[in-house]
Amino acid sequence: MADTANAGQGADGETRRDFLYLATGAMGLVGAASVAWPLIDALNPSADVLALATTEVDVSQLQEGQAITVTWRGKPVFIRHRTSAEIEEAEAVPLSDLIDPEPDEERVIKPEYLVMVGICTHLGCVPLGQRASDPKGEFGGWFCPCHGSHYDTSGRIRRGPAPRNLDVPEYEFRDDATIVIG
C-alpha cells in the first residue's frame, strides 16, 4: 500500500521520511541514555559518604613504639610512631631484598610516622602487629594470619603470597600532630 501511495512523490518523499525516522530514533536513544545516567549515578557514593572521605587524626598522644588503628572510608588505617631503631632498620634494607622494591623515604612524609592502609595486598585480611602483644612477623612489622605474609617496619612485603607493599593512602600533616587522611 505504501509504495503505491507514494509512487508520485518519488525518491524525495522517501528521503524526507527516512530522515524523520532517523531523527526520532536518535532522539529516543539520547533520551534513554539521559534517563539512564541519573539511575546509574545514584549508585555512586552519595554526598554524605563523600563528606566523610577524609579523616583527621591527632597523633600528639601517640608514644614512640605505639600504633593506632583509625577508620578511613570504612577501612582500617595503621599509624605507627616508629622508634629510631625501626626507622634505621627500614632504611637499611637493600632494595634488591624486596619483593616490591620501594625505599622507605618514599613511603613516609615524616619518618617517625608510618601511615598505611591496614589491608593485606594478598586477599584483603587485616594484618596483625598493631598491639604490643601481636605477632609482628619475622621482619618486626606486621604479619597476616590468613596466608602468612610478613611485612617489615616500613610495611613492605618481605615473605609470603602478598604481591605488593601495604598501600600508603594520601595524607598530609595539617600541623605537627594532626594527620589528615584522604
Partner: peptide
Amino acid sequence: ERIMRDVNYGWLI
C-alpha cells in the same frame, strides 16, 4: 530524607 538530600539524583528517583 538522605535519599532526597545526599544520594545522587535521589530526589529525582
